[in-house]
Amino acid sequence: MIAYLTAIATLVGVRALVTLGLNVQWGMAGLVNLGAVAFFAVGAYTSALLAVGGTPLLFAWPAAVGLAAAAGAGLAMVALRLREDYLAIVTLGFGEVLRLFLLNEAWLTRGANGVTAIPRPLHAQFTGHYDVFYLVLVLATVAVVYLALERVRRSPFGRLLRAIREDEIVAAVAGKPVFRCKVQAFALGAGVAGIAGILFAHYLAYVEPNMFLPQESLFVWLALILGGSGNNRGALLGSVVLLGLLEGSRFAKDLIPFLTGVRLAAAQQILVGVVLVVLMIRRPEGLLPEKPGAS
């Protein structure tokens, strides 16, 4: 049971990081990103492949964060010129194309077999209670990222992002570099998702393309909207509640006999969809609404 809870808490931490990343993009800057999972995947795969190839983690990790952020900046430079509804499909498509790339370019990514035997950091030093050590590592990362993003949110840059979110024409008229700020916010969010990807890959010691299905991006959205977009506490709370929802419904299997594996997964996803739609209609501001004028 302890092992189970440790594993769940670790995965909540990883999800919370991706959600914090999306909160920078959507919550703070109002930028649509339906491909959040793509940057998570870039972080996971870059770090995994470099580490398996023998690169020390001290170099592999910054490289992975850097590449995720660069991918975010690149996509943003192309896509942010578009209208919001087009941006939705471009980011969604980017996530899907990246997954196809991971699946097909086996020379680089090892294709459907995935990357195995990813080294686990400091494994020798913490044998016996490695999972607890890793949980502490994840939670510490979440805490550091959270505090850093809170600083960003309160900074002039964060205030400017909110101004752009509310009305970018006004911000532009006031002489603010709107486009540059949007690209920076998108890259920052992608980098945070990349950090989550690194922690994910080295925790499982295995990654494969189907871990990064488009629906994962939807889960991130649900967590963010559930918690309340625009504030980092909401992003954290939403991740916890979402995982509670997903894991809690897993126990339904023991209660209802005819639920097969496929049915259970489908029922969980129906639940996710229903919660998302009801939230959008009834409470779009989430459980913890952003405080007006908070800076």
Binding site: Q215, L218, G273, L276, V277
Partner: peptide, 9 residues
């Protein structure tokens, strides 16, 4: 976003 939720359901 709501329509994606509907599609998913």
């Amino acid at each position: 976003i709501a329509s994606i939720g509907v599609a998913f359901i």
